[in-house]
């Protein structure tokens, strides 16, 4: 029972097809958010008990454990809570243009939302800085309607 670098067991290739799975999820909060985006509005769901506003909203408050359905509008401006500068893509290949990916808390919301920040040298981005959503000219009612974020 020792490590034998030279011995090779037989290798058999196999695949597991994830497209055979049928995921069912309640995406109502995501739909509320996406539909609002057609009107260039950030919509979340508020808990009447603790007052937390979720973007996108779940159907229950994750702190109070009660059902919630109170749709509220938030600002499309917010604060950078954390960020990174992406220098490699998801497959590990270096990216020619570095990109700021930020976690943003919209004013009026309690959750962090993800987006890219442009119009600033990546090294100048700071936690706590104010940013605003830059909308597409023609919105379609999906999460792609926010083109990017820029410093206020």
């Amino acid at each position: 029972m020792a490590y034998n670098k030279d011995l090779e067991t037989r290798e058999v290739q196999a695949t597991w097809d994830v497209t055979t799975y049928q995921y069912k999820l309640d995406g109502r909060g995501a739909k509320v958010l996406a539909d609002g985006m057609k009107e260039k509005t950030i919509r979340g769901i508020k808990c009447p008990q603790c007052g937390r506003v979720y973007v996108p909203g779940p159907t229950y408050c994750r702190v109070c454990y009660i059902d919630i359905d109170d749709v509220v509008d938030c600002s499309d401006e917010g604060v950078v809570m954390s960020y990174c500068i992406e220098m490699a893509d998801v497959r590990g290949n270096p990216m020619d243009e570095h990109r700021v990916s930020a976690m943003i808390k919209f004013d009026g919301a309690d959750t962090w939302f993800i987006g890219t920040v442009h119009g600033i040298d990546p090294m100048d981005v700071k936690i706590g800085m104010k940013v605003k959503a830059i909308w597409k000219d023609v919105t379609e009612g999906n999460l792609g309607d926010i083109q990017r974020f820029e410093p206020v």
Partner: peptide, 15 residues
């Protein structure tokens, strides 16, 4: 719902 998970759009995610 239009999230650009790995792309270059405004809502990129997990680089």
């Amino acid at each position: 719902h239009g999230l650009d998970l790995f792309g270059g759009g405004g809502l990129s995610a997990m680089g």
